[in-house]
Design a protein around this nucleic acid. Structure first.
Lengths: 216, 216
DNA sequence: ACCTGAACACCGTTCAAGT
DNA sequence: ACCTGAACACCGTTCAAGT
């Protein structure tokens, strides 16, 4: 079957899913596509470019079909949860996303939707963009850690044991007190806790905006 | 000169600084140390283990000498700013840190200090640990992006041009409105904005805690 | 236009053998 | 105990040559 950009992308995401980001190589991908290694480079100039488009492909549905009759403080968490789901949809999805700058269509649509909702909250353009960044940073970093521990072969058991070995009740009383809530405790709960925290911060920031407008 | 763990670590951080994380290889490091490639493996079992200790070395000073006569809402931002400075101290410091789980001494000391201050804010152990995670996620993800654009050869000029090329006033009105504040605008201001937002969220979370205590 | 085949310049890791 | 030298099994990328 002849190669297309879309097919390379689709197979690359499958390879990511069952090999992981570190073992996703141009050679392995080409083998999965049934072509020689060089062939892939006709469709993507570099591995970097391929990874960016893979990351953007993950975001395909995050910003579409967002209801427009709901308040901003419902839609902002919705966007955050959708981003988390998108990153969780493939192995190492968050690591694929982070440390990469790709102003591609789906990423821009997500950023725009988020900034739009934050503008409805009464934030000026700069605050809206920056508050959006803060929220996105939170989601990406959370899922990065989530996939680091949860998606491990042993479900994070070794990581938890390593943490316990490092903790000393004498020196780390507060961490020991929270021991069961550390390193791969219930990820949904953990996520929602931080999301609520960031949202509370956004609400507070909106309250302090001088040019506050009513939600439309 | 004979190798020691500490010398390997120190030289590794120097190689990181002038080669970057992607070009920090065991072979290049060994060359900088003046030994054969295999020698380094006698001191660190794997590159992974070396990277973890490098990351922890970055955090050497973040948690020490913290004044204990200041309110929590001054010390928490202080810890966040110190973490940012530590990550900024070496090229790709944030990327070195992120996507890695290392319960090593300095990382634990940082986590403990943060959880301790958040407990003073009136948060229960779990909330303290999780709010600390949220703040740390923010700092690491922010600096990751900061080092991605700022530390570029052209100071992020190409990145900004690429963003402009992707932005369409029709589809991205809110992003266009914030254009000058996107992608490597003043990183200090950007950081403080998000930090204030997260701190406001923490304050709000503390207010809602049922078992709220006065700061000691 | 699209792909093969082969090469170039690298990687992380292991390990017998030396000192 | 600590390091060398060499090997193993890989990498990303390029490019003349084919179709």
């Amino acid at each position: 079957m002849r190669l297309t950009r879309d097919r390379v992308l689709a197979v690359a995401l499958d390879v990511l899913d069952d090999a992981g980001l570190d073992r996703l190589t141009m050679r392995r991908l080409s083998a999965a596509l049934g072509v020689e290694t060089g062939a892939t480079y006709w469709h993507f100039r570099s591995k970097q470019e391929l990874l960016e488009h893979m990351a953007d492909a993950l975001l395909a549905d995050v910003a579409i079909g967002l209801p427009d009759d709901r308040p901003w403080d419902e839609l902002v968490p919705t966007l955050a949860r959708r981003l988390r789901r998108a990153l969780l949809s493939r192995r190492d999805g968050a690591r694929l996303f982070s440390g990469r700058f790709f102003p591609l269509p789906n990423a821009l649509a997500y950023g725009e939707a988020l900034a739009g909702q934050l503008a409805r909250a009464g934030l000026d353009p700069r605050s809206a963009a920056w508050a959006g960044d803060t929220l996105t940073y939170y989601v990406v970093a959370h899922v990065t850690e989530e996939q680091l521990t949860t998606a491990l072969p042993d479900g994070g058991e070794a990581a938890r044991a390593r943490l316990d070995a490092g903790l000393d009740p004498q020196w780390h009383p507060h961490l020991v007190a929270a021991r069961s809530d550390l390193a791969a405790a219930d990820p949904d709960e953990h996520f929602e806790h931080g999301l609520a925290l960031v949202l509370a911060g956004i609400r507070e920031t909106a309250r302090q905006q001088p040019t506050r407008r009513a939600a439309r």
